[in-house]
Design a protein around this nucleic acid. Structure first.
Lengths: 157, 157
DNA sequence: TCCAAAATGTGTATAATTACAACAGTTGTA
DNA sequence: TACAACTGTTGTAATTATACACATTTTGGA
């Protein structure tokens, strides 16, 4: 390994270590949601929150499960009041899945708690530091590009 | 909303975006591991990887399950060859849990893939930007304090 | 020494997640 | 129009995660 790639590797290690605090905020934001829905269930809520009403089969594919599994999985979420089945305007054989107000609220609360957690940390910094964080992390997010939604789905985020 | 809180909100939004990118890297790094162990099982591997050989009851508490549940949970992980029970040198009633080589390899592979993912993002940035990202995350980590490991465990990381 | 406490494991039970196979409407097209 | 393809749901079944109550072994102190 040459000097440049060694330096790169060190930078990656340091960045990884420093990112733990940020991941901690993310994890905390989900704790209360995971007391009322399971992680796979929360994943469905995230998908629907991002994509809006979506066909059963399409969500099943996103989740990586076969339709029959998904149908009864959704039965439980409907029973819990998190999503509802609606009929598609396109075709009577299609069933659309939609967040209920409770489901939307749950996702929104997680997002809001995450924002608050980040703000709480930022507020302990000077304005100058905040500006630096803003620009640096903006650059990081840009360099990463939008992570494919399917990847985030692995952890249900 | 005043100027200061607007700046706060902008920094928070940028941080949120970065956290999503970071989670994308984390999620991708875990995909292949989650094909051979479940998420709760991977969490145990992470605990043992960080703490070394640990008493059954202590790990159960970290995982937030009662010991009787944990005993059979570990039966499955032993059967899978990911961990092994060893007797404690301190007391014959204590059972220590330890990673097998396979278990350690699984965790190491995830860590390595995560490192590569971060590296891939950083390599799309200038050296100066890379330094800025590192410093920004370091400042964030300092302001946040050490995230309780229990929080990270929520996501299995 | 003897017994309460500690640490773990078993018996029993429930809910969640998952798949495969078969079935029932619905749609579009040959 | 008739039939194949599409979309979703049931029947059946295995595995996993989880808890409560109880049993077993070991330890440490009265």
């Amino acid at each position: 390994m040459d000097a440049a790639s060694t330096a790169d590797a060190r930078a990656a290690d340091a960045t990884l270590a420093a990112s733990r605090a940020l991941l901690g905020v993310v994890a905390r934001s989900m704790v209360s949601a995971l007391e009322v829905v399971t992680l796979p269930q929360f994943r469905v809520l995230v998908v629907l929150s991002a994509a809006g009403p979506t066909r059963m089969g399409a969500v099943a594919e996103r989740m990586g499960v076969i339709p029959s599994t998904f149908s009864r999985f959704i039965d439980r979420m409907v029973a819990g009041g998190w999503v509802e089945r609606t009929s598609s305007p396109d075709s009577r054989r299609e069933v659309l899945l939609e967040l209920t107000p409770s489901g939307r609220r749950l996702v929104d609360e997680v997002t809001e708690r995450r924002r608050e957690g980040i703000l709480a940390v930022l507020s302990a910094m000077t304005d100058k530091q905040q500006g630096a964080v803003h620009h640096a992390l903006q650059a990081f997010a840009d360099a990463a590009g939008e992570p494919p939604a399917a990847d985030l789905l692995t952890l249900g985020i």
